[in-house]
Amino acid sequence: MRKSALACMVGVGMLLNSPTLISQVQIVKAEPQVAACLALGEVRASSGYGKKFGWRSLAEKLALRQAQQRGATHAIVKEFKPQGAFNGIAALRIFRCAP
């Protein structure tokens, strides 16, 4: 394996285990749970390129991080779209709800 590929894999692993990646955005199952909230739109995140068996989890964590950066408190998973066998994209609808 090339050093750059190994460094990339180690970097992604460190990113996922980083405390700054832990999102405070709550995933809800249905629209009624966010009916009184402000809709902020949609975020999409890719798992990146590489053979990742857990690409859904990776893409979801990255999308939740984006949602948090945009001020979201809640999200609904819109879709997981495979990009080949081992990669893909997570799309979330995001909302800001009053405390």
Rank of each mutant, 00 (worst) to 15 (best):
A30H: 12
G84M: 06
E42I: 07
A90C: 03
S23C: 10
A72C: 10
E42R: 05
G11S: 13
M14F: 09
R93L: 13
E31I: 06
A91E: 00
A90E: 03
F95W: 07
E79C: 08
G71A: 11
I76H: 05
L64C: 02
G11A: 15
K78Q: 09
M1L: 11
I94P: 00
T73E: 04
I27D: 08
K3N: 15
A5W: 11
V34R: 01
A36S: 11
A35N: 12
Q68R: 13
L6R: 08
R2S: 14
G71C: 14
A35M: 13
G41N: 01
P19T: 01
S23R: 08
T73Y: 06
K51V: 05
L38S: 15
A98Q: 15
Q66Y: 10
R44N: 11
G71N: 03
V10S: 03
A39R: 09
K78P: 00
A7S: 07
G13C: 07
Y49T: 14
P82K: 13
K3L: 10
E79I: 06
I94E: 03
V10Q: 04
A67D: 04
Y49K: 13
L15W: 09
H74E: 05
A45W: 02
A75E: 03
A59Y: 00
A7W: 11
F95D: 00
P99C: 06
A85L: 15
Q24H: 13
G13D: 08
A91H: 00
G88D: 08
A63K: 00
K78T: 01
R65D: 06
V34C: 03
K3E: 14
G41K: 05
L21G: 07
A67Y: 00
K78Y: 11
P19L: 05
K52W: 09
S47Q: 04
M1W: 15
P32R: 10
A98W: 09
T73L: 11
L62H: 03
A35W: 15
R93I: 13
K61I: 04
T20C: 14
C37R: 09
P19Y: 08
G71Y: 11
A72V: 02
G50Y: 12
K29C: 13
C97G: 01
H74Q: 12
V77W: 02
S18V: 04
A63Y: 00
V43L: 02
I76R: 09
S4V: 09
A67S: 09
K52G: 02
K61E: 01
G88M: 05
S47V: 15
F80A: 05
I22N: 02
P82C: 08
S46N: 13
P19A: 14
A90M: 05
Q68S: 13
K29R: 08
E79M: 11
M14C: 12
K52N: 07
V34T: 06
L15K: 02
P19M: 11
M9I: 14
S46T: 06
E60G: 02
F95V: 15
L64K: 02
R2H: 13
L16C: 09
F80Q: 05
